[in-house]
Nucleic acid binder design. Structure first.
Lengths: 248, 248
DNA sequence: CGCTACATTGACCTTGCTCAAGATTAGTGG
DNA sequence: CCACTAATCTTGAGCAAGGTCAATGTAGCG
């Protein structure tokens, strides 16, 4: 997930499909590197030279749990779900990656979770060796990556509180407020319209609930006029109330 | 938490109390740096020069949630609980730090969680500025820290699966097996005797359960002869069964 | 010995899960 | 553009895992 502290403007929506997914995609007119805000121009140029842009259609896998980790990715557009599967099929979504986030930074040689495109996703891909070489020559960049990783860890710990100590209503409120805040950082402006490209099942698997409980909770929040449910998202009405439910 | 990949021998138990806790403690005859396995001799010497050894008696705070983060710590002995508190008093323990683990590596300026000594704890303390300067001159060390952080993140994600998708019995089994595996890495040998210096309440707050459910689950596992409950710990009897319950 | 903190056990209750039936939406082909 | 199908979402009824409350047991300590 690893959010960039400062974020460029949102990439324009585009519809490049699966036929060239996973490979360099010259048709995608997106800014190549979300991380750019953190780097000097020359570093940007150096990284761009190493980057392969790629697109993934909705619901396609970017990599599977246990796959050999051969690439590092920087998300430039769309939403990715990161999930771990138990042997019996139970699933836990450990996070949603938004533009600016990194995937595959772990130095372990296989991915600990699966990454799947929730909607149309654009990525910058680096081979691990190229990325590693680059990092070796740019301690500044490594510090930045480490800072991302620690922020990521902090988000993971907050999610532990949500999973371990919050009830269904608080979980859903924390999810919506958390998503609003992350989007605000990514797109540099806050909004009460929260697009939800992920399914109810995805939300349930993120919050440790069932799809039915998520659905009922959305309905209840809508009945009490805390939110309005719209196609592919919600609009926050009573932000105070939601923030109180989500309060850290 | 941040476990060291290779670990020196366990520090000898000692009883330095609270009266000089938090400050340099020349009486503590512990190896100064758990991280040493990862470093060259000269680096070791350089780090040791910057380190202040300190001891914390059982149940004393090392730092509080929200405290200004002024130090980096490396645990050399004992067990530390890392916890987040909700405004209404609910508590989630986000991890237990064992010898070799780092605290305060985050670059944010205040601690996201509280750290409290579960039993007698010995630490190596660095001021943040000194540690930061050191890291600036040792990219090798920074890489190592980043690798620790990513491993930590992986543990946090596994804990999300435990909290979100496992039942009480599986949670307790995962806790015991996880602790056994971490201790095996720290002390370089595996054992079916698992010391549990933390209280039932701590375990409950780590697993997102109540103290009663933890107690009942221990009792049930003991009745079915999967474990034996001993003072301040458990002995694993049916490791196969526990590993199956905890299976990833 | 008695106090305190911690752990265990029991009885009962609530939240969220399971199972099942509809409702809505999205996709597809005529 | 509409009809048909499949997928997703919502809603309801009943249930069970784990929580709550309360009593009892046990260990450490002055």
């Amino acid at each position: 997930m690893l959010e960039a502290a400062r974020q460029i403007q949102a990439p324009a929506p585009h519809a490049c499909g699966g036929e060239h997914a996973g490979e360099g995609c010259i048709a995608c007119q997106v800014r190549p590197l979300s991380i750019c805000g953190a780097l000097a121009d020359e570093e940007m140029a150096e990284m761009s030279a190493l980057a392969h842009r790629s697109c993934h259609a909705s619901k396609t896998a970017i990599f599977a749990q246990g796959d050999r980790a051969q690439n590092v990715y920087n998300v430039t557009g769309g939403t990715i779900r990161l999930s771990r599967l138990l042997p019996d099929g139970r699933r836990q979504i450990v996070g949603f990656a938004l533009p600016g986030d990194f995937l595959g930074l772990s130095l372990e040689d296989s991915h600990g979770f699966a990454a799947e495109a929730v909607d149309a996703v654009t990525l910058c891909r680096f081979t691990r060796t190229a990325f590693s070489d680059l990092v070796d020559h740019k301690p500044h960049l490594l510090r930045r990556l480490h800072s991302f990783a620690m922020h990521e860890l902090s988000i993971a710990q907050e999610q532990m509180v949500v999973l371990g100590r919050r009830n269904a209503e608080e979980k859903v409120a924390a999810f919506l407020i958390g998503l609003r805040d992350r989007r605000a950082r990514v797109y540099s402006h806050t909004s009460v319209m929260i697009p939800l490209p992920m399914s109810r099942q995805d939300i349930a698997d993120f919050l440790g609930l069932t799809i039915e409980t998520v659905s009922r909770t959305f309905t209840r929040l809508a009945k009490e006029k805390s939110i309005v449910i719209v196609p592919d998202g919600v609009r926050l009405l009573n932000v105070e109330r939601l923030e109180a439910l989500a309060a850290v």
